[in-house]
Amino acid sequence: MDEPIKQIGERLKGLRDVLDIPAEEIAQLCNISIEEYLKMENGDGDISISKLQTISKRYGIALDVLMFGEEPRMSSYFLTRKDQGMSVERRQAYKYQSLASGFRGRNADPFMVLVEPKPEGSIIEQNSHEGQEFDFVTEGRLELTIKNKTLILNQGDSIYFDSSLPHCMRALDDKAVRFLAVIL
């Protein structure tokens, strides 16, 4: 898990160097402190997919480049075979698998997300990102909190929401939950 996070941090630093962007500007864009941002850039702190997406949109860099270090190449279609999508484990409890990493200029970012259960009473930090999000639960039960509203999604349930609202997710029943997330 540490190596992918460290590599993402290195790519963020490289982006800043190439485009001559002060770290303070990206920290402000992500609505975090400069100290927190520099930890992420050094590989000592985790950065959410939503923050990476915000950075990619603001500076015109493909999300895949920040996450995986690869530029998308396909423009007519991109096929992802079962369990073969580019993956990154950003946090111990989350694993993201990109389902369209090779498609250039896409309008949405689809991921298969695996959320491991956390110990009872664990604090889950809410995040937000511009745009909208669609989540479809394929396995397990998901607790989704949007602002102050908590919803339970069972296998087969889906939700479409304004992802600029603070939100967070938790696996229920002490079992992992798997869901399709499409970030628009």
Rank of each mutant, 00 (worst) to 15 (best):
K39L: 13
A62L: 04
K51M: 12
F68D: 04
M40L: 12
D46T: 12
I32D: 00
L52P: 06
S33E: 07
L38Y: 13
E70Y: 11
K51P: 00
I34D: 05
M74H: 11
T80P: 00
M40I: 15
P72E: 00
R73N: 09
D83T: 11
D44L: 14
S48M: 12
K57Q: 13
V65Q: 03
D64E: 14
L66M: 07
D44S: 13
L63I: 04
T80N: 00
S76V: 14
S76D: 06
G69L: 05
N31A: 04
G45M: 08
K57R: 14
M74G: 08
Y59K: 03
E71G: 04
R58L: 07
Y77Q: 02
M86G: 00
I49E: 02
K39R: 15
F78G: 08
R73K: 13
E41P: 12
S76C: 06
G69K: 01
F78C: 10
D44P: 06
S75H: 07
M40W: 02
I32Y: 00
Y37M: 02
S50P: 02
F68V: 05
V65T: 14
D44G: 14
E36P: 01
Q53N: 13
I49A: 08
M40H: 01
T54I: 10
M40Y: 01
V65K: 01
S48A: 14
L52I: 15
S75W: 02
K51T: 01
E71D: 08
L38V: 03
D46M: 11
F78L: 03
M74S: 13
L52F: 09
D46F: 14
D64Y: 00
D83H: 10
L79V: 03
M67W: 08
P72K: 03
F68M: 06
L66C: 08
L63V: 02
M67K: 04
K51I: 02
M86Y: 09
L66D: 03
V65P: 00
S76P: 00
K57Y: 10
G43R: 05
I32M: 03
E35K: 12
Y77N: 01
Q53A: 15
I34L: 14
M86A: 09
G60F: 14
E71P: 02
G69S: 06
R73Y: 05
K82C: 03
L52D: 09
S50Y: 10
I49L: 15
S33A: 05
I61R: 05
S48C: 13
V65Y: 02
D64Q: 10
S76H: 05
G43N: 10
L38P: 01
K51D: 08
L38D: 09
K82F: 10
D64G: 10
K82E: 06
S76R: 08
S33D: 08
E71K: 12
R81T: 11
Y59S: 03
G43Y: 04
E70C: 04
I32G: 00
K51V: 01
Q53L: 15
K57P: 03
D64L: 00
D44W: 14
K51S: 11
D46R: 13
S48I: 15
I47T: 02
M67H: 05
G60N: 12
G60E: 09
I47R: 00
G69V: 04
L79S: 05
P72W: 01
S56Y: 06
Y37A: 01
G60T: 12
M86I: 07
R81K: 11
L63Y: 09
S76Q: 07
E71Y: 11
L38T: 07
